[in-house]
Simulated assay, not measured.
Amino acid sequence: MRWIIPLLACCLPAGLAAHPHVFVDTGIELIFDDEGRLTHVRVEWAYDDFYSLMLLEEMRLDNDMDGVLTEAEEGQLAGFDAEWVEGYNGDLVMRLGGQQLELSGPLEPTATTEQGRIVSTHLREVSGAPVIDGQVLSVMPFDEMYYTAYEVTRPVTVNGRAGCAIDKVVPDIDGQLAQMRAMLLTIDADADLEENDIPLVGEEFATEIRLTCPVS
């Protein structure tokens, strides 16, 4: 299993200890049209140093190891993380008034490097272009399996609307770990995890961005 972080390793049934394999600093741009409707979200992913190095070597990019790509290399790298299998949600869940919004697949992918780290962006269309006045828009980047750990450390911005408030809600990691630890201690080492209804923890460890805008 890939969804338990190292702090739980001491409490897991034998053979289940695991942790995130990829770490991504995330940025979000929420894009509104002239009528105040939410039409798109642009997502920025900055990959950790190790994953970036591994991928650049695999793709034979940045051969001079200076951490800077040529224009041609950027073109070759762009879209490497935008070829999604059917059903993949892009590790992003957006809800308006508690109802999940439907998002398109990735559009306009870009990629570059910053001090050796790969930084990519992609655009997604928000189905129905909703008006969010009077409601809370929730944006949560996470991998439900917790194979990839997302941290919202890069800018969160609003394009096309003024006066909107952005709140970042950081999860209670210690509390979630305590609950998970207590649950795991009740499970036999040879137990079937699916039969024991073990939850996916990615959302529990996710940072939530909440956007509110004044009524236009």
Rank of each mutant, 00 (worst) to 15 (best):
M1K: 01
C11H: 15
L12A: 13
A14G: 08
A14K: 14
A17M: 07
A17D: 10
G27C: 04
L30D: 04
L30K: 11
F32E: 01
D34T: 11
E35Q: 13
G36K: 06
G36S: 01
G36V: 00
R37Q: 09
H40W: 04
H40R: 13
H40K: 10
V43C: 02
W45M: 07
A46Q: 12
A46L: 14
D49T: 14
F50H: 11
Y51K: 03
M54W: 05
L55W: 06
L55M: 15
L56F: 01
E58Q: 11
R60A: 11
L61Q: 07
L61C: 11
D62P: 00
D64I: 04
G67A: 05
G67R: 10
L69S: 03
T70W: 03
E71V: 10
A72V: 08
A82E: 13
A82G: 03
E83K: 15
V85P: 02
V85K: 09
G87H: 13
Y88N: 14
Y88E: 15
Y88P: 02
Y88H: 15
G90W: 03
V93L: 14
M94F: 07
R95V: 07
L96Q: 08
L101Q: 06
E102Q: 04
E102N: 07
E102Y: 02
L103H: 12
S104H: 08
S104I: 01
G105L: 04
P106R: 01
A111K: 08
T112I: 07
T113P: 03
E114N: 02
E114R: 14
G116N: 09
I118H: 13
V126S: 03
S127N: 03
S127R: 15
G128C: 01
A129N: 13
A129S: 14
P130G: 03
I132K: 00
D133S: 13
L137C: 08
V139P: 00
V139M: 07
M140W: 00
F142V: 04
Y146K: 00
Y150D: 04
E151V: 06
T153A: 15
T153Y: 04
P155H: 13
T157C: 02
R161V: 05
A162M: 06
G163H: 08
A165T: 09
A165E: 14
A165K: 10
I166L: 15
K168S: 07
K168E: 05
P171A: 00
L177R: 09
L177Q: 03
R181K: 15
R181L: 06
R181H: 02
A182C: 07
A182F: 05
L184S: 11
T186E: 15
I187H: 13
A189K: 11
D190V: 01
A191M: 05
L193Y: 08
E195Y: 05
V201H: 01
V201M: 09
E203S: 10
F205A: 03
I209G: 11
I209V: 14
R210G: 04
T212H: 02
P214V: 12
V215H: 14
S216G: 09
S216D: 08
